[in-house]
Design a protein around this nucleic acid. Structure first.
Lengths: 211, 211
DNA sequence: TCGGTTTTCGCCTTATAATCGAAAACCGTG
DNA sequence: CACGGTTTTCGATTATAAGGCGAAAACCGA
């Protein structure tokens, strides 16, 4: 998240094929690592890995013609960086608004869109939203993240109530200073689900309560 | 689903390594096919592909030591067969209760369990349950599927009400004959979400209704 | 016809989400 | 320092969805 828009880190290809187009960071799998280790290693060249708050497999892209030449099977990942970290990124990379992607290399546009859809879905039935938020955040800030990622305005009132009832918001007691125009200082919260997996789905058909 | 238990199709290895152990159907990716085409081809040798009502990528398993010898990266799939089809299966394959897996080859047990967890999750926030049901089914039968897959009893009353409100149950007008002991004949329903993707998630943070 | 069985449905309770509006707490300015 | 403008917070209310219970419906076999 950057200035209330959902972004993706892309780098501009310096080689043919598709020279100049923007592509997702990645690279070849080494024989001694699994795919998650590999993508974390690849990303370490672009972003500090410790800043990745969440990493999950997205899907395998394996169409025979997805890249020119010999076939390349790609395991795509969805990785989330909190909105407050602003990592040093190399010259040839940039954060791009997911809503206005540039001309991408290969099938990378569809990969990004798939990742966006996955994020949107999971925001609605998991705690994944907290992976986009800083350690401490205001309800307004969280509302901004949800709104930008989902593409529609969510109510701060309702967001706070829903997350509170689920026991996910822990008040830190501290407050954030108000903006230039004043306004009541916002209370700072942290994610309360420390023991909880950030991707644990909410139950819908719950087990019977009586036992 | 077989006699109200969740099963998985496994075949018994005839070769070393892990001779005699049970393993998931699968095989090597050919250069001219993508992974989904490949797994459908592989399965065609075991089960008629047309009987697969749903196929989705589960995850990539890529630990360097997951199989002896040179590393093999596997893309695992979750495939669902309706409860009423009873395909011809080869001699060396069998349906195994997921709750009581035999000694499996490699990491296939963890793959199966991961698939089970995915199924359980998705039953709660998608229409995936209908992929396990016949074209026409009674609410009781559906309840049996949900109960067996989820591992806890769900109420037929509530299941019907919830799915009806979502507009997913279409009455066919026909009824199923009662069992030996009698009882009111159950109405037959079909899945009403014909245009709808079976995996479309239900919204939780819904877009504002007023617009 | 009657007891046993299974399905279906209405009614009620509970749980969760959405909406609204007022109060709280701050800013800058006159 | 009072005031309008601003943002956050919270209580009260409404709306919607799910769960529980029991009665009625519809069938069987004897």
């Amino acid at each position: 998240m950057r200035s209330d828009t959902l972004r993706v880190l892309l780098w501009q290809r310096a080689l043919d094929p598709h020279l100049g187009r923007w592509s997702l960071p990645g690279g070849r799998l080494r024989p001694d690592e699994d795919v998650e280790t590999s993508i974390r290693r690849q990303l370490a060249e672009k972003v500090d890995v410790r800043q990745l708050k969440h990493v999950e497999q997205l899907a395998v892209f394996s169409a025979p013609e997805r890249v020119p030449g010999p076939r390349v099977v790609a395991t795509a990942f969805l990785g989330l960086v909190p909105s407050d970290v602003d990592p040093e990124i190399p010259e040839d990379t940039a954060w791009h608004d997911v809503a206005e992607l540039p001309r991408t290399a290969f099938d990378h546009e569809s990969i990004v869109l798939r990742a966006r859809d996955r994020l949107r879905s999971k925001l609605c039935y998991t705690n994944l939203g907290f992976a986009l938020a800083p350690e401490e955040f205001t309800v307004s800030a969280l509302r901004g993240l949800y709104s930008a990622a989902l593409g529609y305005r969510v109510s701060a009132t309702n967001l706070q109530r829903v997350l509170s009832r689920r026991g996910l918001l822990e008040p830190t007691g501290r407050t954030a200073p108000p903006g230039r125009a004043g306004g009541r200082p916002a209370a700072l919260f942290s994610f309360a689900g420390k023991g909880m997996q950030i991707t644990d789905p909410f139950a819908v058909f719950r087990p019977p309560s009586g036992r």
